[in-house]
């Protein structure tokens, strides 16, 4: 049992981090908090990948003269380089959405937005959802 824990502690830590991030993503009501959770969630997965790549006694995967020393596995590094970029791009788009949401609703708390959209949803149906008239509203927001 102890061997199991010691042999894989990196994996256990990544699972913990992932659960923390995941919890924040689905439970927090503040939209920015969700994004922070998302970042923790994703980096946790990156940590998992990087942990796979480690070889006992290995060196960084850059060619050098010394013989006999193993290199760490470069493939997960490559994959994660790509994934990090994807993650930051997602974050940027999410934050842009949040800025727009704040402009339209005046809040970034999910529960308040839900209440607001329920109210305006009712208005929509009574207005026969003639949303073209809401263009004026949109322009005001801009």
């Amino acid at each position: 049992m102890i061997e199991l824990i010691l042999g894989k502690y990196n994996y256990w830590v990544y699972i913990t981090l992932m659960m923390i991030g995941f919890y924040a993503m689905i439970e927090k009501e503040n939209l920015i908090k969700k994004i922070i959770g998302m970042n923790i969630f994703q980096t946790a997965v990156f940590l998992f990948y990087i942990s796979i790549a480690k070889v006992k006694g290995g060196t960084a995967p850059i060619l050098w003269e010394k013989e006999g020393i193993p290199y760490d596995n470069p493939i997960p590094h490559v994959l994660i380089l790509t994934a990090i970029v994807v993650s930051v791009s997602t974050t940027a788009v999410a934050l842009a959405l949040i800025i727009r949401i704040f402009k339209e609703y005046g809040t970034i708390e999910e529960d308040k937005i839900l209440i607001m959209s329920e109210v305006s949803g009712k208005q929509d149906s009574t207005e026969n959802s003639k949303f073209l008239s809401s263009t004026s509203l949109l322009q005001k927001g801009e």
Binding site: F46, K54, G58, H77, L81, I84
Partner: peptide, 11 residues
Amino acid sequence: RLNAVDVAFTE
């Protein structure tokens, strides 16, 4: 420390 220098640089 895990020798993922490129990834660390990016992060």
